[in-house]
Design a protein around this nucleic acid. Structure first.
Lengths: 336, 336
DNA sequence: TTGAAAGCGCTAACAC
DNA sequence: GTGTTAGCGCTTTCAA
């Protein structure tokens, strides 16, 4: 790899002159510049990114850290963060926090390989975030409550979402409602569940222990939890799945069991992923403002990078999206 | 930010001793090591990634470059490349080539911010790839034919895929077949189109100029192209969409136009994205081995990184996935 | 306008 | 075992 030294030598100028010429400083004469550029081309020279970053101690890059890069659910978030980064002249790299303690993500934060980060990854510990964030290294934490210098949290109001989803079912006449939960260590899940409980209690309803199942936020988990419910014999009249993926899995289980949705049982999801529109029946769900939250995250990050002060936390509202997976409970089941 | 210098000073040892202690070199005494580690903790010290990379001139990171990070289509690819990277002890970062000449992606390659890359991005020029690749910087180019030192290309056999898709329609009795194309600068698209033409010619059929439409590989493009076709009045009996996204857009246009698929018109897509299973009717399509190709790309990259020699190009096969969007042409339309 | 030189934070060869 | 020191490739001050 040719270095700027080689270029300077070939062009017959000093190292610094070459540097100036290459970065377009207007103090070098046009003739010198040309010589240098010609030499650079000849040697196929390109700046070494690290050396530059090291010197500048700035990378002009921010990271978006996700638990799983391949999740379908993130595309809007990625897009919105990317747009903001681009329009601020920054680069965005996405990396995964898979691998836990020694993940790429942790290293990028620890070793300051980027100028700041947006983190949506339940498997990153608060500790890592707190240790990395600071006045010169802003981190926007999504979906978790955390505070500290350089830290801002954005949460979507999952509690209200859980409440509204449940309330919606209750208003349709349902009395026997189950909540299929996500991973127990997920903050988003606990919020949704709390909302569910508040709505149930508010309507004088009780959660039945036998319907307390978990599906880990994944499709197959929803499928299995639903199968289990089916095997138990007695079904609720409505199910609130902690997220859409699990609801889709549940739908498959019902289909296999010959149970019609929403005629025999109503279901509602959470997230409003793309698929919900396309499945049969289209899924009623709670929409998370992914695009908006990504955009907010990006903007906040750059405000912090520019030394402006921002609030410590932001809460975004959710919205119910009515489709066709919920109806009034069937007569035979609607008795309390 | 505390540096190793500060740590050394606080621990009362030399800089190098601190460095050795921190990197676990066994020449330092346990006592010294402890002192250093304690000092580091106290100062909340973390290595500076760039300085390390600069020194080592290795990053232990590879990049996956995609035209659009948010594409739903890539999740399997991302997952498979990530698995390989992780199992080789490397980090993976994903970045987008949006922004063309000055994109993050171009900079990462040019400035050697990573040790190698897998590139699936039609908007990166061959020139950039050739200029960046070299004996010490392997690049795996997907979906393009390119060669040079440090360059390997993986292509899926889109031509055969295009041929098979078209042949499948012909075998069902279709004679009037349209191909809705992707971006004209897309290599994948031209392959598919060539396959289409070969099948048509082989059956003594001709492509009709009026049905030559482009949808840019995006859903809305497929929708618009189909609308346009609808407005023209005369329809083919079958359409081969250059990818699934466009086919999904087309489906919507047909639905709005009161045209039934596959009763009134048959359609076939390409890619086998997740959605194809869930839409109505489920889409018959050509499956690309995304997971396999990502895995292959990752393995090749590491082989090259280890100095092993590999072939210059690899071709992967496609497979037709029969679902329910194709039937024999309706009687009234099936005449030649 | 150009050149010499300091130093970003770190590693590793070498000397003690 | 531990300390000294020379760079990695670059930018940027300062002097010429």
């Amino acid at each position: 790899m040719a270095t700027i030294k080689d270029v300077a030598k070939l062009a017959g100028v000093a190292l610094s002159t070459a540097s100036y010429a290459l970065s377009g400083d207007h103090r070098v004469s046009a003739k010198t510049r040309e010589k240098v550029i010609e030499a650079a081309k000849q040697l196929n020279y390109h700046k070494n990114g690290f050396a530059m970053d090291l010197k500048r101690s700035r990378t002009n890059t921010i990271a978006l850290i996700l638990a799983d890069l391949s999740g379908p659910f993130y595309s809007e978030l990625i897009r919105s963060v990317q747009e903001v980064a681009l329009s601020n002249g920054y680069d965005l790299i996405a990396c995964s926090s898979m691998g836990e303690r020694d993940s790429t993500a942790v290293r990028f934060l620890r070793e300051k390989r980027v100028d700041g980060a947006v983190v949506l990854a339940y498997n990153m510990t608060d500790e890592v975030l707190s240790a990395s964030a600071g006045p010169n290294f802003p981190i926007i934490a999504m979906d978790r409550v955390i505070s500290g210098e350089g830290l801002v949290s954005i949460i979507v109001d999952g509690e209200s979402g859980g409440y509204e989803a449940t309330r919606y079912l209750i208003d349709k006449g349902h009395r026997k409602i189950a909540y299929i939960s996500g991973p127990s260590n997920s903050f988003a899940n606990s919020l949704r569940y709390q909302g569910f409980l508040r709505a149930m209690k508010g309507a004088g309803l009780e959660e039945q222990a036998k319907w307390r199942l978990s599906g880990g936020f994944i499709r197959d988990g929803g499928y299995k939890a639903t199968k289990m419910m089916l095997m138990q014999g007695e079904l609720p009249t409505a199910i609130f799945y902690g997220n859409d993926e699990m609801a889709i899995g549940g739908l498959k289980a019902f289909e296999e069991g010959g149970i019609r949705v929403p005629e025999d049982i109503s279901i509602i999801g959470f997230d409003d992923i793309e698929l919900t529109e396309f499945i049969q029946p289209p899924l009623t769900t709670i929409r998370q403002p992914m695009y908006e939250s990504g955009s907010l995250a990006g903007h906040l990050l750059f405000q912090m990078l520019n030394g402006e002060s921002v609030n410590e936390s932001y809460k975004l509202n959710v919205q119910i999206i009515e489709r066709q997976s919920v109806s009034a409970p069937a007569k035979s089941n609607s008795s309390v």
